[in-house]
Design a protein around this nucleic acid. Structure first.
Lengths: 145, 145
DNA sequence: TAAATAAAGGATATTTAGATCCTTTTATCT
DNA sequence: AGATAAAAGGATCTAAATATCCTTTATTTA
């Protein structure tokens, strides 16, 4: 469904959000361990997310990554997905046709539109805030299982 | 959403089905042209589909590929997808977690389950027969646009 | 039976995603 | 100021997906 980059990016962002909600700045090593991802590769993804103003980074000793409290309710998961994977998953033809739309639909067009729209709404409506409020955020991380 | 292999495989199968419904055997070249896919790569995919008894192949002059009339209503799209891409898309965790289920869900588990199940049902319920009966099958192919 | 045709199969090439390594920059602390 | 810590950035490397090429096998037709 999503690329590895996008999976790691989502997991990392949620983890950073979770830590930021208790004012913790977290470093790369900690993040990679928590979300079970390769460190150097995760670094690249965090760079992209930083440039796109999803997370912010702090260099030097005691540096790391964080998310402003005020951004939590602004950042929607769909932004992260779009940055890392584009929007083909939400708008592309499921059968891979270049030209497939209302006027010239593939046989599955209408069904695809329905489920893809539902998928899009799912990520459009969920903010980081929402995720943090769920019962099972901490399930995701390699902490105290 | 799907791999190229799977996209080509679905398009090719639908095309062969469409041709078979008027008793036409179609060769690789024709298929690749019709569905706008690389010929040799498509050949590999058709081999897999043949081995998996989705389509049947005929060697030698006037050979090609076809689908038995009786198979049309038996073959569900989900079979083709499962053969070519596995079932991760229907059952895997959207965030890429190894352990994510009812008992140990990620924050998006329930929402993912819902949309993934809908996606699965979409391909579970659509047979080749169903696709051939749709208004816009022919939209898919590079024939008389 | 020989020539031609088309899929099967094997080997190889190319591209992209995924991952790692090393150097540079920025900041902090002593 | 010098040492240290951590992210940024550049260069590579690896594996998997995608794609091509060539030979073999099966079948048909002349």
């Amino acid at each position: 469904m999503f690329s590895k980059s996008c999976e790691y990016g989502l997991r990392a962002t949620i983890f950073i959000a979770e830590q930021s909600s208790s004012n913790q700045v977290v470093g790369l090593k900690t993040i990679a361990k928590a979300i079970n991802s390769p460190e150097a590769f995760t670094a690249k993804i965090l760079q992209v997310l930083t440039k796109n103003n999803i997370i912010s980074s702090i260099k030097g000793p005691h540096g790391g990554f964080r998310i402003e409290e005020s951004r939590m309710k602004e950042i929607k998961l769909i932004q992260i997905i779009t940055i890392l994977d584009g929007n083909k998953i939400f708008y592309g033809c499921g059968l891979g046709l270049d030209q497939c739309d209302e006027n010239f639909p593939c046989p599955l067009h209408n069904q695809f539109v329905k489920v893809k729209e539902e998928l899009r709404m799912m990520f459009e409506t969920n903010t980081l805030q929402d995720i943090l409020f769920t019962e099972n955020v901490k399930n995701m991380f390699w902490l105290k299982r």
